[in-house]
């Protein structure tokens, strides 16, 4: 409001009719779950290779900033740093188990954190949203866990037998196929 208005115009209110500002900061449950996912992922990656610790810690800090201040960019940078830690660990020869958990943690930190920011923007912190947040987080975790089981199963089954190049092409093919799919 500018200073030269004689007084506040009452009655001109937002769609929920409250003259009080709505607190639109990210939803609490999702924020906590995103931080938890990131931390578990980092712990697993660091267990595989200590090289992941430095970018991973930075990543956790950025994720925290993202979910506290509602910044999608900070969240993306944080999750990216967490995944960067996973790549470092993988490059220095970590086993598949820490890498799977670390990647899952990084992706979930972004997915759940972004959902929390979106819910905060649309519904506000005063609204009861725990159920929607938990269902979303559980669905994301389920998909990741399923992919992990399949991927890890393939790793165990094909241990050493298949050429790496074949796997790489297979992956590229699947990515191309999925990108071409339109629901």
């Amino acid at each position: 409001m500018s200073d030269d208005e004689p007084a506040t115009r009452a009655g001109e209110v937002s769609d929920d009719a409250s003259p009080v500002e709505i607190d639109r900061s990210p939803a609490v449950v999702s924020s906590a779950l995103a931080l938890l996912a990131g931390t578990v992922g980092l712990a697993a990656t660091a267990f595989g290779s200590a090289a992941a610790l430095a970018p991973g810690t930075l990543g956790i800090a950025a994720v925290a900033v993202g979910v506290i201040r509602g910044s999608r960019r900070a969240l993306l940078v944080g999750s990216g740093a967490l995944f960067g830690g996973v790549l470092l660990a993988g490059a220095s020869g970590a086993g598949p188990e820490p890498l799977f958990v670390g990647t899952l943690g990084a992706v979930l930190a972004w997915d759940v954190g972004e959902n929390g920011i979106g819910i905060g923007e649309q519904l506000g912190r005063a609204a009861e949203t725990a159920r929607a947040e938990l269902v979303h987080a559980a669905a994301g975790l389920l998909v990741g866990a399923f992919a992990t089981v399949v991927g890890y199963g393939a790793y165990v089954a094909a241990a050493g037998g298949q050429p790496i190049a074949a796997l790489v092409f297979l992956l590229f093919g699947v990515v191309a196929l999925v990108s071409a799919l339109r629901p």
Binding site: G90, A91, L99, V107, D111, T148, I164, L167, V168, L171
Partner: peptide, 26 residues
């Protein structure tokens, strides 16, 4: 990224497999 890094840094099959997660989420 996982596949690329996995190939460039000495053929790490574990890293390649991690890429499956990305496909699953896509």
């Amino acid at each position: 990224l996982a596949a690329g890094v996995g190939v460039v840094f000495g053929r790490q099959p574990a890293l390649l497999l991690v890429g499956a997660l990305g496909i699953a989420y896509a």
